[in-house]
């Protein structure tokens, strides 16, 4: 459940942005690489727990998991890798994992009425 600390960091950034824009955030879009091991349900659950009875309790998350990319040493092609079946489309098992995407708060939708 490292999602709890992620939720706390998110709350800090979101409340700061809400103050800057003087508006209520409704949707937050997040992206992360697979190696961040983020579980959507666990993250939403953790956020709900800390956002209860605040301006943010109805905030919805949209979480995009970016696939890990790898470069094949046999055919030199870059491809999206599935960790459950780590091989290049060419069949080769010789490849190098490329850097995993960090956890990013990409966008917030604010209420405008």
């Amino acid at each position: 459940m490292h999602e709890m600390m992620v939720a706390q960091s998110l709350m800090a950034i979101i409340s700061n942005e809400a103050a800057k824009h003087d508006a209520k955030p409704v949707v937050a879009r997040i992206s992360c690489g697979m190696l961040n091991s983020i579980n959507d349900e666990a993250l939403c659950f953790a956020f709900e727990a800390i956002a209860k009875d605040t301006l943010y309790e109805d905030l919805k998350f949209q979480i995009e998991h970016k696939p890990i990319r790898a470069r094949c040493e046999t055919c030199k092609v870059e491809f999206e890798i599935e960790l459950s079946r780590p091989e290049c489309p060419c069949g080769s098992e010789k490849f190098e994992l490329l850097a995993d995407a960090p956890l990013i708060l990409e966008e917030i939708d604010f209420q405008t009425d």
Partner: peptide, 15 residues
């Protein structure tokens, strides 16, 4: 609804 670009690393404090 107003869409605002944020683009911040969530774990920047830890980083």
């Amino acid at each position: 609804m107003e869409k605002v670009d944020i683009g911040k690393r969530i774990l920047r404090e830890n980083e």
